[in-house]
């Protein structure tokens, strides 16, 4: 749905949220998406941590894009990303020890999130600082949104609660499978199917309107 009239800055931001959503459309960075989306809180924290690393590394890569030789660019990007991940890791440990325990090694594993390296290579290394920041914010927000969508559904069905508060009535039998690893695969599959059905319906409506 690219509208040529929209100013490009809002476009850079909005594309990450929906049209090029990193999780639902590009299917990037799946490992943390599935692994730490068992509760809404973990999902949100993980999303924000990833968004922060994405923003900082996009900024730095964009600033340094004229100085990094092409042959060693991937190694340089990885080093930049690893630095910010180490920062984030220590910051989360200082802020909340419980959260750090719940997310475990997956904070360090942000380094290996293909979404971040992908954005550095495909966008930040070719664009100015402002656009790179907007791109990172949009992608980060889209990633957090997707993680939250998964985490909320899994926690609601798997434990009958949301952010740790019981939401569903006491008689509800929790679906343990939703908290187990396989629940992550199923939930993401159902989100993908739901989004595809929604897109189909919208396309059909648009073609119907175009015909009239």
């Amino acid at each position: 749905m690219t509208n040529p009239e929209t100013p490009s800055s809002t476009n850079e931001f909005m594309k990450g949220l929906w049209r090029e959503n990193p999780v639902f459309v590009q299917v990037l960075g799946m490992c943390p998406v599935l692994a730490v989306s068992n509760t809404a809180m973990n999902a949100l924290a993980m999303g924000l941590a990833t968004a922060f690393v994405l923003l900082m590394s996009n900024l730095l890569v964009s600033l340094l894009r004229d100085f990094i030789p092409r042959q060693v660019r991937i190694a340089s990007y990885i080093l930049i990303i690893a630095t910010f991940v180490t920062l984030t890791d220590y910051a989360i440990e200082a802020i909340s020890l419980d959260l750090h325990k719940a997310l475990g090694a997956f904070i360090s594993l942000i380094v290996a999130n293909c979404l971040i390296l992908g954005r550095a290579e495909a966008f930040a290394s070719k664009n100015g600082v402002g656009n790179a920041a907007l791109d990172a914010l949009g992608m980060g927000a889209g990633f957090t949104l997707a993680l939250f969508c998964l985490g909320a559904v899994r926690e609601l069905l798997g434990a009958g609660s949301l952010f740790g508060f019981a939401v569903l009535p006491g008689g509800f039998e929790p679906w343990i499978v939703m908290i187990l690893p396989s629940g992550g695969f199923f939930t993401l599959a159902f989100w993908l199917i739901a989004i595809r059905i929604f897109e189909r319906r919208r396309e059909r409506r648009q073609t119907a309107e175009a015909l009239q």
Partner: peptide
Amino acid sequence: GTASALLVAGILSL
């Protein structure tokens, strides 16, 4: 596509 692959992965994981 991806959705069916994920469903298969879920069953394998079970």
